[in-house]
Computed example of a mutant assay.
Amino acid sequence: MGYRELLGRPGIRPWLLVTLAAKLPVAMAPLALVFLVRETSGGYTLGAVLGGAYVVGEVVGAPLLGARLHGAQAMPSPVWRAYLHLVLADGSSTSARTAKPSPPSGPPSPT
């Protein structure tokens, strides 16, 4: 079955459009966090750290939610613990390497 035949089936095109539209907010949330924080006070660095934290939370939470929705454990326990350990260790080391304090914003204090 090719793509042309698949797209010719009734109901496939609306389903594809709805699926794409449903995934857009999840994909755009980290970018929105970067722009929101940049406009308020933190700059790009803090926005990137918050966007990265959002993505790490999504990576950790997606298998948990999937296992809960399917009613069965997604992975065996030792593999699950190793997965969480790698994800959390990688996320914390990445944010520690990339996070740099941003200079204070606002008028300088009188001396």
Results as ranks from 00 to 15, higher is better:
residue 61 G to M: 05
residue 26 V to P: 00
residue 50 L to W: 03
residue 83 Y to Q: 07
residue 49 V to I: 14
residue 78 P to I: 09
residue 41 S to R: 09
residue 62 A to P: 00
residue 75 M to Q: 13
residue 100 K to Y: 07
residue 73 Q to D: 12
residue 4 R to H: 06
residue 103 P to F: 06
residue 49 V to G: 00
residue 103 P to T: 06
residue 46 L to N: 10
residue 89 A to F: 08
residue 17 L to A: 10
residue 27 A to E: 06
residue 17 L to H: 07
residue 40 T to E: 08
residue 69 L to C: 08
residue 6 L to R: 07
residue 39 E to A: 12
residue 26 V to H: 10
residue 80 W to D: 15
residue 16 L to R: 02
residue 39 E to D: 07
residue 23 K to G: 06
residue 38 R to L: 12
residue 54 Y to M: 08
residue 56 V to R: 07
residue 71 G to S: 08
residue 43 G to I: 04
residue 35 F to R: 11
residue 59 V to A: 08
residue 79 V to F: 12
residue 11 G to L: 04
residue 45 T to C: 03
residue 75 M to Y: 15
residue 64 L to K: 09
residue 58 E to I: 04
residue 74 A to E: 12
residue 40 T to Y: 11
residue 10 P to V: 02
residue 38 R to Q: 09
residue 11 G to Y: 03
residue 94 T to P: 01
residue 37 V to W: 06
residue 13 R to P: 05
residue 102 S to G: 13
residue 48 A to F: 15
residue 8 G to D: 07
residue 35 F to D: 04
residue 42 G to Q: 04
residue 42 G to M: 04
residue 23 K to P: 00
residue 105 S to Y: 01
residue 105 S to K: 10
residue 87 V to P: 00
residue 97 R to Q: 13
residue 96 A to D: 13
residue 65 L to K: 05
residue 17 L to R: 10
residue 47 G to W: 03
residue 7 L to F: 15
residue 69 L to N: 09
residue 56 V to P: 00
residue 54 Y to R: 01
residue 25 P to D: 02
residue 4 R to K: 07
residue 63 P to E: 08
residue 48 A to E: 08
residue 30 P to E: 02
residue 85 H to M: 14
residue 22 A to Y: 00
residue 54 Y to W: 11
residue 107 P to Y: 04
residue 69 L to T: 05
residue 72 A to K: 14
residue 60 V to K: 04
residue 106 G to N: 02
residue 50 L to F: 05
residue 70 H to N: 10
residue 105 S to V: 11
residue 86 L to H: 15
residue 66 G to R: 03
residue 42 G to C: 04
residue 16 L to M: 13
residue 85 H to I: 12
residue 98 T to Q: 07
residue 46 L to V: 14
residue 80 W to P: 00
residue 68 R to H: 14
residue 94 T to D: 10
residue 94 T to A: 14
residue 44 Y to E: 10
residue 24 L to Y: 01
residue 105 S to H: 04
residue 71 G to P: 05
residue 68 R to K: 09
residue 50 L to D: 06
residue 84 L to H: 15
residue 33 L to E: 01
residue 106 G to P: 01
residue 56 V to M: 11
residue 27 A to S: 05
residue 97 R to Y: 15
residue 102 S to W: 01
residue 72 A to M: 09
residue 79 V to K: 08
residue 95 S to F: 04
residue 89 A to D: 12
residue 89 A to Y: 03
residue 93 S to T: 13
residue 79 V to D: 11
residue 26 V to G: 03
residue 14 P to E: 02
residue 44 Y to K: 09
residue 10 P to S: 09
residue 67 A to H: 07
residue 35 F to K: 06
residue 99 A to R: 11
residue 28 M to N: 00
residue 8 G to E: 07
residue 70 H to G: 10
residue 51 G to F: 02
residue 7 L to E: 07
residue 35 F to L: 13
residue 42 G to Y: 03
residue 93 S to P: 00
residue 9 R to K: 14
residue 85 H to T: 15
residue 35 F to N: 05
residue 90 D to Q: 11
residue 81 R to T: 13
residue 37 V to Q: 08
residue 57 G to S: 03
residue 79 V to P: 01
residue 42 G to N: 05
residue 92 S to Y: 05
residue 21 A to N: 01
residue 82 A to I: 11
residue 74 A to K: 05
residue 88 L to T: 10
residue 68 R to W: 15
residue 15 W to H: 13
residue 61 G to E: 07
residue 83 Y to H: 14
